[in-house]
């Protein structure tokens, strides 16, 4: 099947795409913009690329019927990110689980739809990786435990927010965003302190 916007989904029986071009076993986020200006987002996918096309599939074996192919000639742009999930402070301190799911819901419902919320998320996503790496190396350190407590509190508040009326939701949203700022500042301060301790330790 071929579409006018640059994306092709091949018919069954095509060549073995898992051997086509170059790729690896890491999940990625891929955003492409076609020459016609259409955007396509693919989250948690595997990618292979050749000189002429990108192949994107949620299955690492790239079954032809499930693989989306973009000809580079039809694209203006592609963005490929392969952050590890523990690049983010929340995951590095609290791990995967219900807390993370609650905060993801808050991010999607409250922060992502607004401009100021997106700006805050952008700051968080940008500063997180080095801070998260430091906190992950010191899971029992005081700053990491403090950030973990804040994250857990935010997760509980996000759950409570989902169960309250509109006035309560607005109030809890403000509290959550304030705690988010406090959490990022605490994590950044913890990063500086822990890195300083690492630098001064003999090993």
């Amino acid at each position: 099947m071929s579409t006018d916007d640059g994306a092709d989904t091949p018919a069954e029986g095509s060549d073995d795409l898992s051997e086509s071009g170059v790729g690896d076993g890491r999940e990625k986020h891929v955003r492409v913009v076609t020459a016609a200006g259409k955007e396509f987002d693919h989250d948690k996918v595997f990618l292979r690329h050749t000189e002429t096309e990108y192949l994107i599939c949620a299955d690492p074996d790239f079954p032809p019927a499930e693989t989306t192919r973009y000809r580079k000639d039809d694209l203006h742009r592609a963005e490929i990110t392969q952050h590890h999930s523990n690049c983010f402070i929340t995951t590095a301190t609290a791990g995967e689980g219900p807390t993370l799911e609650s905060l993801r819901g808050f991010r999607a419902d409250v922060m992502a739809p607004t401009r100021s919320g997106r700006a805050l998320l952008r700051v968080y996503e940008t500063v997180s990786p080095p801070i998260a790496a430091t906190l992950a190396r010191h899971p029992d350190a005081g700053p990491t435990r403090a950030v973990r407590r804040l994250v857990d509190t935010c997760g509980s508040l996000a759950d409570r927010r989902d169960r309250t009326g509109s006035v309560g939701q607005a109030a809890l949203s403000v509290v959550l965003i304030a705690l988010y700022v406090v959490g990022v500042v605490t994590a950044a301060a913890g990063h500086v302190w822990l890195r300083g301790r690492e630098a001064s330790s003999p090993n």
């Binding site: 690896d24 913009v33 020459a35 580079k72 742009r77 963005e79 490929i80 990110t81 952050h83």
Partner: peptide, 14 residues
């Protein structure tokens, strides 16, 4: 390109 954690690709027309 595999080692980088973010890759931006721009076609010549882009």
């Amino acid at each position: 390109l595999l080692q980088a954690d973010t890759v931006y690709w721009l076609g010549d027309e882009g």
